[in-house]
């Protein structure tokens, strides 16, 4: 039987499969740079797959392939028909298909990262698609953004504020951003990064290693499927 023979219909309980990590945020905040940084940092120790949701083309996927941080075959690009938030929230079928195809082809995997197309502050991942999610903002969007909240900022498991190197140039006050974020996020973590300076986004990578460890503690370490035997 082919690798694709097996049925996809089981309701996912997470057992014996990779942690699915959604990465969302507005256009240009650094989602793709973060994915590349995580591949760079985690590639040596974790078995990875990446799904991108480009808005127009396969540009994000191409960027990652060119960056040489992951085997290009482990990157799948999903098209979203003008509606990036629909593909991660309301109709996740194409993304689930992409994730499962990666797991079938290259599995067992430890972590599959699903990068959303750039969207607005209300865009969050369905729990049917992502087990955990990161929302990425950048300081040049203005230091008021955390205060404005929205589901991405308030509910993501991790909020990343990127491009801190630009803060002095755009007049963004990181203390204000940190205080406002803490207020609307109810104690959930916030990390400040400058991926241009820290090519491995090490603080974020450390957080991801932590959630992968907890996931595998709870659901088992993914290993080769044996249910056909």
């Amino acid at each position: 039987m082919s690798a694709n023979h097996d049925d996809h219909h089981e309701a996912p309980d997470g057992h014996n499969r990779a942690l699915r990590l959604g990465i969302g945020g507005p256009v240009g905040s650094g989602k793709t740079a973060l994915v590349a940084a995580l591949c760079r940092s985690l590639g040596p120790s974790l078995r990875l797959g990446v799904v991108t949701n480009d808005i127009y083309t396969t540009e994000d996927a191409d960027f990652l392939r060119r960056a040489g941080v992951i085997d290009p075959a482990r990157i799948t690009a999903v098209q979203t028909g003008c509606c990036p938030h629909t593909a991660i929230r309301d109709d996740i079928a194409a993304n689930i298909d992409a994730v499962e195809t990666l797991e079938e082809r290259f599995g067992p995997l430890d972590l599959v990262i699903v990068e959303s197309g750039g969207d607005n502050l209300t865009a969050t991942f369905s729990r049917g698609l992502a087990d955990k999610q990161i929302f990425v903002l950048d300081v040049s969007g203005g230091d008021k953004v955390p205060r404005k909240g929205g589901p991405g900022v308030t509910s993501a498991d991790l909020l990343v504020v990127n491009k801190t190197d630009l803060a002095p140039m755009v007049g963004a006050d990181l203390t204000v951003m940190s205080r406002d974020a803490a207020k609307v996020r109810d104690g959930k973590p916030v990390l400040f990064t400058s991926i241009r300076e820290d090519k491995g986004a090490h603080s974020v990578a450390e957080w991801v290693v932590g959630i992968v460890g907890s996931w595998q503690h709870e659901h088992g370490t993914p290993h080769s499927h044996s249910y056909l035997s």
Partner: peptide, 11 residues
Amino acid sequence: SRLPAGGHAHS
């Protein structure tokens, strides 16, 4: 069209 089966991305 809200049936979550991927149709929204086909024209």
